[in-house]
Every structure is written in structure tokens, then in C-alpha cells.
Design a protein around this nucleic acid. Sequence first.
DNA 1: CGATTAGTTGAGGAGACTCAAACATTGTGG
DNA 2: CCACAATGTTTGAGTCTCCTCAACTAATCG
Lengths: 248, 248
Amino acid sequence: MMQGAVCHGVPAALLPTGVGRGPYAYQTFRDLIDAYRFDRPAGFTVKLEGEATATVYYLVSGWLVLSKSTANGHRQIVDVVLPGGILDPVSADACTSIVEIEPLTDVSFAAVPREDWHRMLSENPSITREIDIINRAAIARMFERMLRLGKGSAESIIAFAIYELHLRSTVLGMTDGYRLRIPMTQQQLGDFCGLSAVHVCRTLRRLKRHGVLEVTDHMDIRIRDIDALTEIAGIDPDALRQEIIPAA
Amino acid sequence: MMQGAVCHGVPAALLPTGVGRGPYAYQTFRDLIDAYRFDRPAGFTVKLEGEATATVYYLVSGWLVLSKSTANGHRQIVDVVLPGGILDPVSADACTSIVEIEPLTDVSFAAVPREDWHRMLSENPSITREIDIINRAAIARMFERMLRLGKGSAESIIAFAIYELHLRSTVLGMTDGYRLRIPMTQQQLGDFCGLSAVHVCRTLRRLKRHGVLEVTDHMDIRIRDIDALTEIAGIDPDALRQEIIPAA
DNA sequence: CGATTAGTTGAGGAGACTCAAACATTGTGG
DNA sequence: CCACAATGTTTGAGTCTCCTCAACTAATCG
């Protein structure tokens, strides 16, 4: 049912809304995206380096995760990118890549040469502003996640992750009420929440047992008690929405 | 000795380097900063909200931390801001503040109205680029910290924090070789590393016992075995420097 | 010089980890 | 169409890290 929206097509909320409202700006941005658009199946992985970093990525559809890993094999997913997300994976020295990128689903994205990207921005101040807002939202949700990664129980970080992904998906029109398919394994959710896969499993089952969630068939989630979920996650729903949802 | 550099005056590396190299750009930026500059003692706190968020802060000297806290009293420091750092504490909706701000020392900063800030940027593309780089560096170091916050032992996150702060301070000319004064209590370091103050204490003592650090008198730190420190933190020193140090 | 704040140390407990084995689901080749 | 492999989830047992509580010491300051 809703897989379609996740993996294919441009969600209604994506290009039309939010990014450039004037007809000219809209055309420009969209043309640029279309010109450099690629489709890739779920399997591929990118370790960005060298000239690959001279590129700005704009996700049109599908889910990506950005992660870092340590020498001893641990991995932390630092952000989940949903359609409309921007990926500018270049560190301070403008040539070392910061993160590894992994698609969770089939993805469609635009790989725009940095030069073209910046030209487009300089010609379209309104888009610059929109993108600024998108970036702010990304930082805001990272802050929230750090809060729960550092302090906070397994329950609270998992509850937060699920609530965050549900909220963001809903804004993109990818949910069916309180139902949400998260295209991650428990291992990946663990890498996102700083937990072992085993503990993710136990925690999800506890949430299920307490009637907060329903989890079926590989992360097909239904939120049964949203108040309990936000309570466990330590979320003020209105404040969170204002912080992490790009609103112009 | 080096406290002077931490708390007062403009570190050599700050305004002159990095931010705007042409005489015109340099003048403009510096004038703006000077026009809106404030000094504040260590004690004050800001909870930014309302029109306060229509302001961009540029830290001239001193240390600040940005933190978030939960309803149940836990706090996570999401970043430490050193001289030259920019603080644009506005979330996606452009009016809710994301973070609380706390100075660790006496600070001198410029509180620039957003409008003026953006005008300055639009008139000085080179400064825009510099600031972009500063922001990237901030994100890169947050990614690194998230990796250790999620996975990683108390030793590794503390070792990382100390190494990071030493590296950044060194670039700003605020260290004396391997000596560094971190103006944080163990409680604050714990809030930064996602640990209790008690465990910070134990961990520091262990590092001391193993000859990695020397800790005297309220976080006056000397790194005795930098290789051991990077090993424990899981750091590749060259790569880290490239990622988190703004280099133009 | 007491009062406050920060750091140290011990004891005990809870939460999350690892290892390991069983089970479920999906996909594949014979 | 079945057997089997591969992948992911579930559950149990045991351990270790880190937390909390609490008492004590050290340093700082009016």
C-alpha cells in the first residue's frame, strides 16, 4: 500500500511545496534536479571520497542513512534522509567525506555538481532560504537525538526514533494514519539508536506488550498509543514539530 | 598563563585568519562584529526565544556550550563553541530556539541582527564561504561525537572529547603544548559525554593511572601519551583534523 | 572560618551487552 | 515444488559497564 510512496514517485509534499514558490525559481530548481537525476536499487553503497564530494545530492524518493563507523566495527547512523533531504557530504577541508551513505530502499536522487548547485542558489535567493531551513531542521533533529543517545533509556531513544520517523513521513504523505513502514532491520535501528540489535528486539517487544506499538512483519509499525509513545520519548509534540519539520 | 587567551582578547587565529582575506571583506566583517559586540561574565545564562532568535551570535572570545535538556532534568551538551564559532540558534520554523546557551568562561561575543548578518553575507561571498566551512566543521565534529555517544565506552568518548577540545584549542593558539585547561566541571563534561559526573571522575582517574593524562586542579589537563589517547578514542588524527578544523 | 561547590571513593543495583541457540521468512536452484 | 541457504528476529543466560545513592575530602570564597 504505502510502500509505493516510499520507494517510487515524488511524494506530493516534495518538489511542489516548500522548495521555491515562484514559477521561475521552481522551474530552475526542478530542472536542475531532473538534469542530474539517477535511480539506484536498494543494494548499492557509496563511500564518498575524492571528486565524489564535489557533488551535492538531493534525494527525490526513497530512504537513505548516513553513518560513521569506528575501526572496531561499530557503526552509528547519524541521520536518516527522507525525500526532499539534501546531502552535502563534505567536511571542513572541502575534500574529505564525513559519512558513509547507504540506501534503505530503492532511491531516486539528483547528484548535482557543486558548481551548478551553487550557481542555482545564487540565482535563486528564495531557494537558498528554503534549503537553509531544511538544513536547520536536520540539525535540530540531530540535537534531539543526541540528547537521547547520551542520557535516556533504550525505550526513550527507540520511542523517539519511531516518533520522529513517523512525523517526518507523515509530513511527506508517506504514512497511513498511525501506520508506518520503517525500511530498516533491527540491526540498523540499533545502529541508529546506539543499541545492539538484540536489545532493540527486546525493547520493541516490551513496547508491544505494553500496548504502545504494534510491530508486524519487518518493521511494519502501528502506533497504538501515541500519548504513551511521546511520554516515553520525552517529547512535546508541538515543540518537536516546530523544530524538526521544515516550515517556510 | 593560557587562561588569558581563553577568556580575554582575540586569539591570533581568530579574526585575522580564515574569515575574509581581502582588506574590504575583512573590514566589513570586523566592523559588523565590533558594532554589536558584548562582553558578559561567566555566570549569565540565556534561554533564547522570541525575538532573541532574530539574532546571529559570533563568539569572539571565551567558551560556550549549547545544550538541550529533557523534562526529567537530564541535560546533553550538544556542542562546545570556541572563539570564532557561530551560533545561529533557530530551528526550522525560524522562531523556536533549539538550544540553551551557557558560557563556561567570561565571553565576548557579537549579537548581530539577522538582517545585518545576511546583508553582510550577501555583500561578501568570500565570507559566506568561510562561514559555510565553519558550519561544516561543527557538523563533522557532532557526527564524530554521536558515533562515540552511541557506541563506545566511557573511556572512548572522554578521550575523544579531550582530544577534540585540545585540537581545536591548539588551532586557536590556546594551548601550551599538550597542556589544556578545559573550563568545565566534571558534571559538565559528563553532560557533554553522556555520562554521570561520578563516572567521569572514575574514568579520568583511570586514564591518569594508566599514564595517559595528568589532571590537576579543576580540569587542568596534560596529555602524557597522545598515541594512547587517540587509540582509546578511536581517532585517526590526520583524518579528524581534516574533518573538524575549518581550513580554507 | 563556616559555607558552598567540586571532586573522590565505596557499595549495590539496573540496564544493556555478548554469546549462543532456536525460529521465521524469503529467495534460489535442483 | 521442495530443500536449503541466507537473512533477520526472538529468547535465554551470564556478564559488565555505568548509574544512583551516600559519605567524605579538597578547594574556593565571602
